[in-house]
Design a protein around this nucleic acid. Structure first.
Lengths: 346, 346
DNA sequence: TATTTTCGTGCAATCGATTGTATTTGTTTC
DNA sequence: GAAACAAATACAATCGATTGCACGAAAATA
C-alpha cells in the first residue's frame, strides 16, 4: 500500500505543454489567461483529480486557514459547545479548528499558545485557565500580530475582542427569582473571584439582595471549585456550622448537584426546605428527578459570534485597522422545580 | 501593531557569515558540522529567538505533525473524552489534533475526510457516523497511504486498526446483573443495529437471556435513537401496548434517563417495580437522585490506546509493513440504585 | 614531498504554488 | 508594410528548510 502520487500544477502544465504559471493563473481565474486555456486547464485538472497543496500555499501566503482554540477542558459540555459553534461558523469558509487544553494550568496554556503560534495559525480563540494571572503569553500573541479573541473567561487587554456572557445579570436574575419565591436567607456558593465570571456572579447576587433590602450575611457566602464533590462539602460546611439558609444560588450546576445530594441525605426537602438555583444549564439539569433551576448560557451561539468577530477582524486587518469588539450575551433563567415553592411545573 | 518579522535560518547565516545549509545542519545536530560552528549557531539562534518554520518543513518532508479526528459530535462526553485521550498521548510528541464533526451524516464525514487529506495530516482517527454505510471515502484514506484508526464505531476494512469496547460483554454483564437481581421480564431499548456497537449490545442481551434460560420476547425489544426524548417515547410505547416488563436494559444512558422519567410519571417505582440499566456511564448518572446502574467505557483510555496504535503504525510504516491491530477494551458494570432490588447502596 | 583521506562548508536543487517582469504572438492603425 | 499596441504566455524569483554533490583545506599516509 504505497503513497499515491499527488498531482501538481506541473503535471498539468506538462500534459498541456504550457507553463506552470499559466496553470496557476487559470486555476485562480486570472483575467490574463485566455478562455480557451482556462477551460482546458480546468478540464484536465478535474481529469487528473488535482488538489491544491495547501502547505505550499500556506508557505507562500502565510495563511494556513487553521485557527487554534484553547480551553481548560474539551470534555466539559460548555466548552465543547463553544467549539462546536466556532467550527460551524468557520468550517464553511475553509478553516480548520485546532483544539488545545490547558487543564486549568497557566504553564500548559502558555506552551499550547507557543506551539500554536509556531504552527502559523490564522487566529486564536481562548478561554483562560483558572490559574492564569500572568498574561505575558497572551500579549505575545498580539505582538506577533495574530488575531486573538477571548470567550467566556477573559482578561482585559486593550485592543483585544471578547465574547462573554453577562454573568452579573444572570446571577441577579437567579437571586431575584429566589427572593420572589419567598426565600429570605439565600446563600451563595461561588467560584474563585480571580476569574471575572465568578466575580460577576457574586456581584449580581449581592446586588439583588441589596435591591430587595435583604441583609448580606458573609457566612452564607462560600468559594469552592466547580465539582460535585465541592458542592457536597460546601453544604456539609453550612449545615455543620449551623449557618441558617433557606436557599442557595450556586455558580455551577455541578456544585448545585452535589449540594442537593447532601441536602437530601440530611432529610431536607427541595424546594420546600431549601431552594436551589445553579448556573450553566448543563444538559443533565433538565432531566433530573427534580429538574434544576439554572441560568442558561447559549455556548454554541457564543462560539458562532466569536468566529464572526474573528472573520471581521481579519478583514479589517488588511486595512491595518484593529477594532476592539466586546460582545456580551444575555443569559436566560430556566425556572424549574428546585426553586418553585408555590407550585410545581411538569 | 504590525507583524513581527520571523527569524529564519538565513538571518542566522547572514549574521554569522556562513551558508544557510550549515545553519540547518547545525540546528539538526548533523555530524558534518564542527563543534565550534554548531555552538555558535545554537547560541545566535537562541539570541535571535529563532523558531523553525513548520510549514516549510512540512512542504519539504511531507509530515505536518497534525492528525485529524472525526467524530459525530464533539460535545458528547464520550467523544470529547476520547479526543482528550488522543491529545494527551500525542501532544508530548509534538502533534496537533484537528477535530471534525460529522453530525452523524456520511456526506459531512466524507467532506471532512477530504479536506483533512488535503491538509496533509499524518493520520486520521475516526468513529463513523450512524448513516455511514458506503465506505468509499474511508477506503480512499488507506489508498492514499495515510494511517487510519477506528475507535468505538468501526467498519471492517482489512489492514485497518481499531480500538473498541467489548459491547457484547458489557451488555451481557448488564443483563446478567438484572437477572441475578431477580428480574424476569427484561426489555431492551437498543439502537440502530447498522452500527456494530448496538448490534453487539443486542447480541449480549440475547445471549444473557439464553444463558439463564429466559424466554425471549420480541415485543420487549425496541430500536430507538440515543436521546432522552426517544427514551420517554419508548417506555410510553411499552406501557401503552401493555407489554409486560419488570426491567429494561438500554444501550444509552440518555434513553434510560428518559425511560425512568416516564416510569415515574406513571407512578412506577425504580427499582422496586422496574429495574433500569444504562450504557456509557455518562457523568450525570452517578449523581442522579437515584444513581443509575450503567456500563462504563473508559473513553480517555480508548483515545490513549488509539494514539499509541497510531504511533506504532507510523514507525512500522517506515519498514513498509502494515500491521492490523485490533484492541478491544473491557467495559465495567457500575451497580447503582436503579437495579438493586435487594437493598440499597449509598 | 606527493598523494590520499577526512572534515567542514558552500552551492544549488527541491517541495508546490504564486506573481512581477519579460517575451512572444497576434491585431490594429497609419 | 512598418510601427504601435494589446493579449497571452513564459521565465524566474520567492516562501524557509533540507540534502546530495562538489570543493577546498587540513591532516594522514605512503
Amino acid at each position: 500500500m504505497r503513497q499515491k502520487e499527488k498531482v501538481t500544477i506541473y503535471d498539468i502544465s506538462k500534459k498541456l505543454n504550457i507553463s506552470a504559471a499559466t496553470v496557476s493563473r487559470a486555476l485562480n481565474d486570472s483575467n490574463r489567461v485566455s478562455l480557451k486555456t482556462k477551460e482546458l486547464v480546468l478540464k484536465t485538472a478535474k481529469a487528473l483529480n488535482y488538489q491544491q497543496n495547501t502547505l505550499a500555499l500556506a508557505l507562500k501566503s502565510g495563511r494556513t486557514f487553521n485557527v487554534g482554540v484553547v480551553v481548560p477542558y474539551i470534555n466539559h459540555t460548555f466548552f465543547a459547545s463553544v467549539i462546536r459553534g466556532i467550527e460551524e461558523e468557520l468550517e464553511p469558509k475553509g478553516y480548520h479548528v485546532i483544539i488545545c487544553q490547558s487543564h486549568e494550568n497557566v504553564e500548559n496554556e502558555a506552551k499550547q499558545i507557543k506551539t500554536l503560534l509556531n504552527t502559523h495559525i490564522d487566529g486564536i480563540f481562548i478561554s483562560v485557565s483558572k490559574s492564569t494571572e500572568d498574561i505575558k503569553h497572551i500579549e505575545e500573541v498580539c505582538e506577533e500580530g495574530v488575531p486573538l479573541i477571548f470567550f467566556d473567561r477573559k482578561k482585559d487587554i486593550s485592543g483585544v475582542s471578547s465574547v462573554t456572557i453577562n454573568d452579573y445579570e444572570g446571577a441577579f436574575a437567579a437571586t431575584e427569582h429566589l427572593i420572589k419565591q419567598g426565600y429570605k436567607k439565600i446563600a451563595h456558593i461561588g467560584g474563585d473571584p480571580k476569574l471575572q465570571i465568578y466575580k460577576h456572579r457574586y456581584d449580581g447576587y449581592i446586588a439583588a439582595l441589596k435591591a430587595y433590602n435583604i441583609p448580606i450575611d458573609k457566612n452564607r457566602i462560600l468559594e469552592v471549585s466547580s465539582t460535585v464533590e465541592a458542592g457536597i462539602t460546601a453544604v456539609q460546611d453550612l449545615l455543620d456550622k449551623k449557618i441558617e439558609f433557606d436557599a442557595f444560588f450556586s455558580a455551577s450546576d455541578y456544585v448545585a448537584l452535589g449540594g442537593m445530594r447532601e441536602l437530601r441525605s440530611r432529610g431536607l426537602k427541595i424546594p420546600e426546605d431549601v431552594g436551589v438555583v445553579g448556573f450553566s444549564n448543563e444538559p443533565f439539569t433538565k432531566y433530573l428527578e427534580r429538574p434544576l433551576t439554572t441560568v442558561g448560557q447559549t455556548p454554541v451561539l457564543m462560539g458562532q459570534i466569536a468566529a464572526q468577530v474573528f472573520l471581521e477582524q481579519i478583514k479589517d486587518n488588511n486595512k491595518s485597522v484593529r477594532v476592539e469588539k466586546k460582545v456580551v450575551l444575555m443569559p436566560e433563567l430556566y425556572e424549574r422545580e428546585t426553586s418553585l415553592k408555590k407550585g410545581s411545573i411538569d
